[in-house]
Amino acid sequence: MISLGPGERAALGREGERAYPNECCGVLLGGIDDSGGKAVESLLPINNKGAPEEQYHRFAITSEDYLAAEKEARRQNRDILGFYHSHPDHPAVPSAFDKDNALPFYSYVIVSVENGKAGVIRSWELTADRGEFKEEEILWR
């Protein structure tokens, strides 16, 4: 399970709408409790480094961005819990491309943006055998 606050919900929608018709992306920072539950405490927006002509359906966070995010997480005394991105005019369901590029443990939060308006937000985790994405319950704080 992953919990998100009203500030994160608003920021996810705002980011998705700002990037529309392209995809936005960023890092989820927060803490992990003893039972493995994740609590997102802040979002770290990242400039989509996908090829400009592909950003309407692709996002990329480089390893250099990841290292910078890890430093920021340490500065905030938080962990990288996962990543978010938007699906412009597409449901908040991971694609085959999402799955091929994912790692287990991390939460992959997707916000659907229909006609420029943010809508459904869902979260997904890759199974340890890389077999499939499973939906992760979001607890809205």
Partner: peptide, 11 residues
């Protein structure tokens, strides 16, 4: 040595 993921995805 650091193993560092790059993250990608999309529709």
């Amino acid at each position: 040595i650091m193993l560092v993921p790059a993250i990608a995805g999309g529709v």
